[in-house]
Design a protein around this nucleic acid. Structure first.
Length: 165
DNA sequence: GCCAACGTTGGC
DNA sequence: GCCAACGTTGGC
């Protein structure tokens, strides 16, 4: 099993959209970057776990966890002329973009902010925290995954002093 | 809204 | 294949 982090603008698809429809498969479509596409197409597998990251919004950070319930298949939005993700160059035989299906697992008790993630020396290798990074589908190591899960459960505790606030 | 960083496009 | 111009991402 592999671990991932997917970025999303919460205005479009947020952790609450997952939390509000537990047990429902949500189509993760609209990935239009080749490096992200390659991960999605070749390495994201049924049963993998995914951090849902909220970007370009007021509260930036990891909001929760979802599970892959369907591995990659042609992204329907590339054929849909009314979709913002429409790609006129995509045809049935030449369709470069793929989607996967995700299902709700967990919403963190509180959002784990990008600022907190950047403070952790254990996450320095995560592409997310590197300057200028734009990758919207990225692998997370099992050690990073476990550390982030631990951080998400470490509520109200100050990183510097260890005192509860 | 700004703008740095990055990816893509297209002329040559 | 190079690389300048352009478009997009995404934090601030």
């Amino acid at each position: 099993m592999n671990y991932w982090l997917f970025k999303t603008e919460p205005d479009e698809c947020s952790i609450d959209d997952f939390a509000n429809s537990p047990g429902t498969a949500i189509v993760w479509e609209g990935v239009r970057n080749y490096q992200a596409r390659n991960f999605l197409r070749d390495q994201v597998k049924l049963g993998d776990l995914v951090f849902i990251y909220h970007s370009s919004c007021n509260a930036i950070g990891i909001a929760g966890v979802a599970r892959v319930v369907q591995s990659s298949y042609p992204d329907p939005s590339q054929f849909n002329a009314s979709s913002p993700y429409f790609d006129a160059k995509s045809t049935g035989s030449k369709a470069p973009w793929v989607a996967v299906d995700l299902q709700f697992v967990e919403k963190f008790p509180q959002l784990l902010s990008l600022d907190k993630l950047k403070q952790s020396t254990k996450l320095e290798q995560l592409p997310l925290v590197k300057k200028g990074n734009r990758l919207s589908v990225m692998p997370v190591s099992s050690a990073e995954w476990q550390h982030i899960i631990t951080m998400s459960q470490d509520r109200g505790r100050d990183d510097e002093t260890g005192k509860t606030t």
